[in-house]
């Protein structure tokens, strides 16, 4: 059992080799535009914390190699999109159907605001008509006093 453990350990730990070389600001800059597709996290390639991640680690190596070959950031990202489709991108693209990912939340806020506007208009008390002035001032004062007492208790 121990021997088996040691073998598994070697396999597990060897993955952690030379990790620091792949976590540079330059690699992170491009990595932050790419989704980690390991299915275990919702991070980007730039900030996936699993050093031995089966997706992020080779992705970082690929970014490093691309940078060493003098490729631009966009070209490196495009390479990932070509291979994995647009799911390789950390953010949904703002075009076609996927733009709905961005537009729906503000649209819903707009809809909510319209609903509140409608609600306020519908629920707002109408202005007090002039007829009220016909009511005896003493009666009005009594009601006002009562209302003020109620209001004081409201909170």
């Amino acid at each position: 059992m121990l021997r088996a453990s040691a073998l598994v350990l070697l396999a597990a730990l060897a993955m952690a080799q030379v990790s620091s070389e792949l976590i540079t600001p330059e690699i992170r800059r491009i990595g932050s535009r790419l989704a980690c597709l390991c299915k275990s996290c919702k991070n980007t390639v730039g900030d996936c914390a699993m050093l031995a991640c089966h997706y992020s680690k080779p992705a970082r190596e690929r970014i490093r190699d691309g940078q060493a070959a003098g490729k631009s950031d966009d070209a490196i990202v495009a390479g990932f999109v070509t291979e994995h489709g647009r799911q390789a991108l950390a953010l949904p693209p703002n075009d076609g159907f996927s733009s709905l990912a961005w537009w729906m939340p503000p649209m819903m806020v707009g809809f909510g605001l319209a609903l509140i506007y409608w609600f306020i208009r519908r629920m707002r008390k109408p202005a007090v008509p002039a007829a009220v002035s016909a009511i005896d001032q003493k009666v009005l004062d009594r009601y006002k006093e009562s209302i003020e007492k109620d209001l004081a208790k409201l909170d």
Binding site: T44, R86, Q87, L91, S98, P105
Partner: peptide, 28 residues
């Protein structure tokens, strides 16, 4: 709504367009 939408959008996108889209932490 935005959290629910972001959570379900990959499923919705794949169902409607057949394209897989990632909606990860940076979006949220």
């Amino acid at each position: 709504f935005s959290i629910l939408w972001g959570t379900l959008f990959p499923v919705i996108s794949e169902a409607v367009t057949g394209e897989k889209i990632s909606v990860d932490a940076p979006y949220f």
